[in-house]
Amino acid sequence: MTAESTSTVQRTANILHALGASDVTPESGLGVVDIARRVGREKSQVSRALKALSEVGFVERDPHTLTYRLGWQFFALASNAGQQRLRTVGPPVLRRLVGTVKEAGYLSVLCDRSALTVLSESPGRAVEAVGWVGRTTPLHSTSTGRALLMDRTPEEAGHLLAGTDFTDAGPGAPAGLDDLMERTARARRTGYAVADEEFESGLVAVAAPVRDFSGRVVAAVNVSAPKYRAGRDLDRLGRVVMATGHQLTAAMKGRGRPA
């Protein structure tokens, strides 16, 4: 790679970093002059780079304000990279969690209107849930669902859960959307969700969110166990699972090592 091409790549990366800064919202964006100032380049150089980036969908230009923001193609690639990284960093972290709590652990993502289990780890106990990879569970009656809903407004959750039968659950499940959102708000405050016989009788679980580089919830890590074995220890389990969620989040952002 020549010095000129290296400079072009660096300039492009700096522009994308500038548009992705925490003080830049999708509504406001940045003008060419602001971008040039932030990356320390001439306006003409930045304009040419933005034109090339917009042609491939990495940035978008607002036709009214003439400001730029990150485009759909950038987020599509980031999402795909995040999913790949989750599959890479997830297994060793999940194994450590299960080794610590001695209960079954799972990693799930939002799929349509359910939680899809993508990874699982077993402690080898005689009594445990098995065969969950590739299966879905409801959002309204599981700790995993609540963790995945943590960043959703009541309106967004209502749209996502439209038509849900809240009576089709365990004895401790939320009675309706308002109850669910109250429990979700409580989970947001503590950092982890607790489900006590919500999915089915005799089963308890705790879950915490996993976030991507933008801070968006992209997955949930959870531990579930029979109530007779873990029912009195849910707060401790919750704190351990929350720490695991933080570890996975750091790894997703490239700030932690999975092994």
Rank of each mutant, 00 (worst) to 15 (best):
G163R: 07
D34T: 15
V194R: 15
L177R: 11
G82V: 03
T25F: 01
R135W: 14
E55F: 09
V240A: 08
A185P: 08
V223I: 02
M181D: 06
A173W: 05
W132Y: 09
A193Y: 07
V218R: 06
N80E: 13
E60S: 10
V223M: 00
A3G: 13
R113K: 04
A104E: 10
M242L: 09
P92E: 00
G105S: 06
T100C: 04
P92D: 04
W132A: 09
W132E: 07
T144V: 14
L116H: 05
T117P: 12
R125K: 09
A175P: 06
T65H: 13
V89Y: 11
A104R: 15
R236T: 02
A126F: 02
T117Q: 13
R216V: 06
G124D: 06
E42Q: 15
E121H: 10
S47D: 13
L177S: 07
R135C: 06
A21I: 08
V98N: 08
L94N: 05
T12I: 09
Q10D: 03
E103L: 15
L177W: 09
L203E: 01
V59D: 02
D34S: 15
L77F: 09
A187G: 01
Q73N: 00
P209K: 10
N80F: 07
G57W: 03
G105D: 03
G202R: 04
A157I: 03
R95K: 15
D165M: 09
E200S: 12
R113E: 01
E55M: 10
V24R: 02
P174R: 10
G172Y: 02
L237I: 11
P226D: 03
Y106D: 09
V98C: 02
S201D: 13
A169W: 04
A169L: 00
L107K: 06
L19K: 08
F199C: 00
G31E: 11
A220T: 14
G191D: 07
P26T: 07
Q10Y: 08
A162S: 04
E42P: 05
V33A: 14
V241M: 12
T88K: 11
G254T: 05
M181W: 12
S141V: 01
P138C: 07
A157M: 01
P123V: 14
Y228H: 07
G124K: 12
T117D: 10
H17E: 15
V127G: 00
A195F: 00
A78C: 05
V109Y: 05
L77N: 08
L160F: 08
